[in-house]
Design a binder for these strands. Structure first.
Lengths: 227, 227
DNA sequence: GTATGAGTGGCATGCTCCTTGCAAAGATTA
DNA sequence: TAATCTTTGCAAGGAGCATGCCACTCATAC
């Protein structure tokens, strides 16, 4: 099993200190903080395999974090676990529906927490591998890099997310609405035309000059599809 | 979110009956049994999206099931959730390490269980999506693509919706009024004749040259039907 | 035969998509 | 800090395609 970084948002209780030791003895690297600003950058940089958020400490702020993490396909690689001493059922349901992978009551057992982190990671790591290979295109999610016939292609942040989305489900047709939600996020409002522009720029960098497109196909009236 | 079948191994407690109703109202199909023999065949046949196993009832027999499911790539598509009234930490850890995706204590909240099933399914979902197969025609909703004898047929937006409507309920006769409402929407006003035109173009692309029609039958004075 | 419903070819219209240029915001460098 | 480069979002023009309707022909029911 692959080890990784674990972000813990919340202060150190006795259980969390035990958990810390357990995780470290298992080969995980820990990062604990009580400041949730700049979470997005942090997650993108460190690519943690798990994120623990203490609801008692962060409360409502945590919900927006859940949806951010849920929407971003790069960040989704992390197991998102919520902690709370509040046993209320509706809170648990809310958390799970907001995108969390698990909801654990405090006080919790460190050993069980470790087992849960492993169980979720197991799910995430299997299935979609870290590299996507389509034709002569190779997309490396961890390195955040794209190669065509071995030669690296420089893509901007949006271009990468767009390509990754399309390539992650070949032949699936994505509507512009879907693309906007997955690449830009639910709240951001950006024109449909803008999607076209980014598709064009992406096609350019992939080296598409002629019709029919070799990689990205336009489905008139519907959306785009990666061949 | 993709719905599916849920296998429940264990007898009906009051919570499980509530859960049953919840799942059904969400569009899931349930299969409950207290016999675990032939599990492998059952799972392979039904491809459930979740499997709930009551440890109180099955005890040690459950562990072998966990590892079977864990090892089989096909079966891994299902969310495996263990239930137990035994709060013992080591049991929970054992279950999770054996390959279960979640471990829930009894008595459990049906709504939370539903949320957990969804949370896990979200991770697993690979979107081998909805397909309709009629004769040698195959309609793939996700790929927004139609195949005849394996060969792709290019349909326009309206043609696709029209075909999908007709094929979704074979042998059902759709009046032009009904077709207009379902394909064009309630407010749009379009002539009946236009429906004919689209039927004609659709028939053309499906490769219908001679009478009687192989796919779309005209019911004089009434409407159309997909055979 | 007559009346009504259905099929067809062609064409104008409008919509969708592609492309280019530009301006604003962000990142980088000196 | 100022200057430069990069990224991003949008508007507008233009090309191509899907659509909807007309007018006409053909089929069906009585």
């Amino acid at each position: 099993m692959e080890k990784g970084i674990v972000h813990i948002f919340g202060n150190g209780t006795s259980a969390s200190i035990q958990l810390e030791h357990l995780l470290e003895s298992e080969g995980y690297v820990l990062q604990q903080t009580s400041n949730m600003d700049g979470l997005q950058e942090m997650v993108l940089r460190d690519k943690p395999s798990a994120i623990l958020i203490d609801l008692d400490e962060f409360g409502d702020r945590a919900w927006s974090v859940c949806s951010e993490l849920k929407d971003d396909m790069v960040m989704r690689k992390a197991a998102l676990i919520l902690l709370s001493s509040n046993e209320d059922e509706s809170l648990r349901v809310k958390g799970l529906e907001a995108g969390a992978d698990d909801f654990v009551a405090k006080p919790y057992s460190p050993r069980e927490m470790l087992a849960r982190i492993k169980a979720i990671s197991r799910r995430i790591s299997t299935g979609d591998g870290k590299k996507i290979r389509v034709k002569d295109i190779e997309i490396d999610l961890d390195e955040h890099r794209v190669r065509k016939a071995g030669k690296p292609i420089d893509l901007t942040y949006i271009q990468f997310k767009l390509l990754y989305l399309l390539a992650s489900r070949r032949n699936n047709v994505f509507s512009r609405k879907e693309i906007l939600e997955k690449v830009w996020g639910k709240k951001v409002y950006v024109t449909n035309r803008t999607v076209d522009v980014h598709i064009k720029r992406l096609r350019e960098k992939l080296g598409e000059y002629k019709y029919p497109s070799q990689y990205i196909e336009t489905i008139h009236g519907t959306g785009y599809r990666f061949l």
